[in-house]
Each structure stands twice: as structure tokens, then as C-alpha cells.
């Protein structure tokens, strides 16, 4: 085969795969979202947006993302810096920290449910040490704050490692000489982090943040396990439209809204963390 055609031949399988399993379903979903009895319309979008649960599920999703992602960013940066500095046992620590990645999000939700529910570990422990007299219903509708906190904790536990892995790889790409130069020219460890690590880590931060923010808008199983119907989010609403209400047009419309939000945030992150031409490592 001619060398000019070879690259196209090599990307053909993955292109086909994406067309069949991504592009084609996407077109179907769009058709459902914009379709109606009499041709194209925005009817499903109007229905979805005007439903009383839409604002609250949107608010919950955004609040959760706003609470979880910054904490995860800070934590993963801290953990990545620590791992990078380690001389020995680095791989072991990295494996242990990434274990939650190997657990499905529903299983993770159930693990944290086992901690927070009325007969769970937390209650048994607190009763055991005499902090409270009888088990408390942490996750009941009377404690929306605790439900939010439990979901946020579970999400942080479950999904920080995905950012960690990306950032560890990114920090590994920064040549050591930059840190030595910064040190010789008077930068303190904190200044070296702010003035060398962070700016040189921008490409990895972009990837990690986009991945994490998009996943945060798709949060579902953990929320369902811990909050049930007490804490509606966008994804649980899509589920409800599709399976409880059997309204696949509305489900598709809401799915496209989530996609639009994800695209907007991706563009914002790309713009905010862009690296000027000529300023790459």
C-alpha cells in the first residue's frame, strides 16, 4: 500500500467503530429529541425545561460539580506532588490510591451507603463509643445537607484518582532542571509549585479537568444509591423520563442539554488553560 494511504487505512477501523457506535446513536438521539408528531420541533425541550424537577436537578448537579471538582483538583495536585517526590514505594502508593477507580460507581455508592445508613458503620461506631444514644437517620429527607455531603464524599473518594493519574504523568514530563533553576534563582517550594509546576502542567490540567467536569455532569449511580429520590440530578431525570415515564423524546432532549453544558465547560477550560504558541515544554 502506498505510504500516503497507509495512515488513513490504519485509522479506518476506529473511525468505523466511532461512526457505528457513537455518531449513529447520536443522530438517532437527536432525531428523537427534535422529532414530534408533526415534524421538527422544540416541543421536548420546552417540556423538559418547564418541568418542576428541571431547575432543582440542574441546581443539584451544578452544586455537586462545584463542590466536588475543586476539592478533587486540589487533592489530586497534592497527591501527585507527594507521589512524584517519593523515592521508594511510589508505585505501591499509586496503586492503592487508584483502587477506587476499579470499582463501579454503583458499588462505590453502596459502599458509602453501608457507612451512612441507619444501621451502617458510622452509626454503629458512634453508638459504640457513646457519642450518640441511638442510630441517626443521616440520609433521610430531613437531612438534605448530610445527603449532599455523603454524595460529595463518595464522589471525591471514587473519582479523584482519575485526575491523579493524569497529573502524575504530566508532572513526570516536567524536566528536573526547571526546578533546580527556580531554586537557584530564589523560588521557595511553594513558589516553585505556583511558578513552575502549575503553568507547565496546563496541558495535563486541561485533560484532567475536562474529563472530571464532564463526568461530574453525568453523576448518577452514587447519587441514586445514597440520595434516591431525595436528590434529583440531570442523569437521574433522564433515567426517569426514559424508563419510568417512557418518554424517550424528553429523555433524548435532556441528554442533549447535558451534552451542550459539557461542551460549554470543555471550551471554557480549554480557553482558560491554553498554552500560548511557543510556550510548550
Amino acid at each position: 500500500m502506498s505510504p500516503r494511504l497507509l495512515p488513513y487505512a490504519l485509522i479506518l477501523p476506529v473511525t468505523l467503530f466511532l461512526c457505528v457506535f457513537f455518531l449513529y446513536p447520536f443522530i438517532l438521539v437527536s432525531q428523537q429529541a427534535f422529532g414530534s408528531a408533526d415534524g421538527w420541533s422544540l416541543e421536548h425541550f420546552r417540556d423538559v425545561v418547564s418541568y418542576w424537577k428541571f431547575p432543582i436537578s440542574m441546581q443539584n448537579t451544578l452544586l455537586l460539580a462545584a463542590a466536588v471538582v475543586p476539592v478533587q483538583l486540589a487533592l489530586s495536585l497534592l497527591m501527585a506532588t507527594m507521589v512524584t517526590r517519593m523515592q521508594k514505594g511510589r508505585d505501591l502508593v499509586l496503586y492503592v490510591w487508584t483502587i477506587p477507580l476499579g470499582i463501579s460507581d454503583l458499588a462505590a455508592g453502596i459502599i458509602w451507603l453501608a457507612i451512612f445508613e441507619q444501621s451502617g458503620f458510622l452509626n454503629s461506631m458512634m453508638v459504640g463509643i457513646g457519642a450518640i444514644d441511638s442510630p441517626m437517620p443521616f440520609l433521610s429527607y430531613q437531612n438534605p445537607g448530610i445527603i449532599f455531603l455523603a454524595i460529595a464524599l463518595a464522589e471525591i473518594w471514587r473519582a479523584t484518582a482519575i485526575m491523579l493519574v493524569i497529573l502524575v504523568a504530566g508532572i513526570g514530563l516536567i524536566p528536573k532542571e526547571y526546578y533546580e533553576a527556580a531554586e537557584v534563582f530564589g523560588a521557595s517550594p511553594w513558589q516553585r509549585f505556583l511558578r513552575v509546576t502549575l503553568p507547565l502542567l496546563r496541558p495535563s490540567l486541561q485533560t484532567a479537568l475536562i474529563l472530571r467536569v464532564v463526568l461530574a455532569f453525568e453523576v448518577f449511580a452514587v447519587v441514586v444509591a445514597l440520595g434516591g429520590s431525595q436528590f434529583p440530578v440531570l442523569m437521574s431525570e433522564i433515567y426517569a423520563y426514559q424508563f419510568d415515564l417512557q418518554n424517550s423524546g424528553a429523555a433524548a432532549a435532556l441528554a442533549l442539554i447535558v451534552l451542550a453544558i459539557s461542551i460549554v465547560f470543555t471550551l471554557v477550560i480549554l480557553r482558560a488553560l491554553r498554552v500560548p504558541k511557543g510556550a510548550t515544554i
Partner: peptide, 15 residues
Amino acid sequence: GIAMVFQNYAVFPHL
């Protein structure tokens, strides 16, 4: 009271 010139220059790419 020292300054240093490194073998690979270590000129910061982001500045």
C-alpha cells in the same frame, strides 16, 4: 550569592 547556567539552559518555556 550565586547564579547558575544549566547544561540544557532550563529557560522556562511558559515565560
